[in-house]
Write a protein that binds this DNA or RNA. Sequence first.
DNA 1: AGTTGTCGGCCTTGTTACGCT
DNA 2: AAGCGTAACAAGGCCGACAAC
Lengths: 338, 338
Amino acid sequence: MAGIAGSDKPNIRQVADIAGVSHMTVSRVLNNYPNIRESTRTRVLEVIEELNYRPNSAARALASQRSRRIGVIVDSSSENGPASTLRSVELAARQAGYSVSSIALGSDVMSPQEALEHLTALGIDALCVIAPRSSSVSTLRTLAIGVPVLVIKADRDPTFLTVAVDQQQGTRLAVDHLASLGHRDVLHVAGPLDWLDARARERAFHSRARSWGIHERAIVIGDWTADFGYDFARTLTTLPDYTAMFVANDEMAFGVIHGLHENGFSVPRDISIVGFDDLAVSRHFLPPLTTVRQDFAALGERVVEALRAAVEGNEVPQRTAIPAELLVRQSTGPPRTT
Amino acid sequence: MAGIAGSDKPNIRQVADIAGVSHMTVSRVLNNYPNIRESTRTRVLEVIEELNYRPNSAARALASQRSRRIGVIVDSSSENGPASTLRSVELAARQAGYSVSSIALGSDVMSPQEALEHLTALGIDALCVIAPRSSSVSTLRTLAIGVPVLVIKADRDPTFLTVAVDQQQGTRLAVDHLASLGHRDVLHVAGPLDWLDARARERAFHSRARSWGIHERAIVIGDWTADFGYDFARTLTTLPDYTAMFVANDEMAFGVIHGLHENGFSVPRDISIVGFDDLAVSRHFLPPLTTVRQDFAALGERVVEALRAAVEGNEVPQRTAIPAELLVRQSTGPPRTT
DNA sequence: AGTTGTCGGCCTTGTTACGCT
DNA sequence: AAGCGTAACAAGGCCGACAAC
């Protein structure tokens, strides 16, 4: 088309013809087989460069029965955690030569089964499940999948590989921070308890609170949204008997602070607040939010490492925990002295 | 393997054998060809159901030279706008029977060329470019791509299809709001001007400000981050001679409010702030942020509609603009009277 | 007689082109 | 002409055969 003949996409045999070898030699060069003479390899690579040849991934997937694709099922992809995790998985996957196809569950009309259908129809070598509710995990447990499955969750699992940020340790950081400021009456605003992360934080909160002798009380169960936090805080018409809150994510924490403020209370003077996530805006909230940061980039890398090992038949780390980090800002202070 | 013979994935010929037809008939049933007797179609569909047969997408892509995949290049995928757009494109694509492969530009070591390389190596039927800088668009303009390309940007383009939220109209809403509150001295805090959206908002701001007789002044050019907004606001040790700011995105607006607050100024009493995006937390910021909302869901649908039409050879809408919406909250009020 | 390097043929699964009733 | 079939093809990978050193 462009004057020069053969501007169509070259295939492996054209490369072979020009290099004066068989198509299999080209294939071996491409796949780094050992038994190729150096001069042959160079010649082939030159022709590949010259023609700007790129192997056709569909043909490759068909012949090798390997798609080099990782399927990702992501629950509530609009939440910060899941979204960040997904992006980090995508990045790590690409760097490992894999592509990613993701399907969002949650608000869509999309069950785990359907999502899995879509992905297996696409042809995936491995499956990663992000930020799942326990119900999603249960469903997946009943399904025959045929490829390695990794679930991003904190607890060890008999069926799946797991990788996660250490929710327990992150929660400990938060509770220890409050306790060392002197708080002995702390409310936990949890996420929906069918979410594994929410459950893990809730359990860890109770356990750590107990060991500090923090007054045990009923927790509040939210839905991750700032709206919930706001509505809840607006119900507090008088100062409650606790002096701090450990809120399961930053968004709810924002809502809580907003609601408290509208009711005439001040953070941290009247109540201290610790969040979880460290959103980009958290340090610019009024007041800047003390929160627990999760290293999603590391998470994505561990995920891809593990799945890749599983796919390629190498030694697989059965479970990986990534440490969390506490960022102390201005939403926490000593308890009020009334 | 599992006792029953043939627990492996069935292929089209096995379906054909059991249904007593040729594999071509099965193919025709799958692709809704017209000339198939109803009874044959039913029989084939029954066998497909029974075997739980799913066509192999790699084989399909190889034979048909169509991957039913849309490649997406997304600039700064961590920003809210791009991220939301990407998710909406993914959703719309899946509903249209397409899959999506996305590559993030920006902080990564990844040029538009490389991204395009990756995607074309994967085999895509169409390309969508999200939230691009003008430099990315220029680069792409020089590249022969071979598939329909849609760029999400506000201006018409000779080379590419375009779809976008109407930045000009959205900006008008913001400026009109401030003007009708009485503001005649407004500062624009822009995004990086090599970003098409930032540039569009800046142009629209100037044009609309002029028609209201708003005092012309140098704009401030930021980088979309809350950190920038904060640093800028901290430089304002005394009240400036303007009474309102139109900030090009909510994140910077958060930073600005934070910085103003630390300098002892109050929003909106001393200065009114309008943002752009409507993040989930914007309504819970202190004060809740007046902002311009973009309908990303509609955006994704239009994108996929247009690309699909282009791929399948139907009538293509060359350019689509989606209206924006102003949300008036509490970060804006009448100008201070000093 | 072994290694090392290369070749041709057949395989993957579905679609396109054409042809026969 | 509606309804279906056969052959060729898409772009690679696997494997046995065989030549060269």
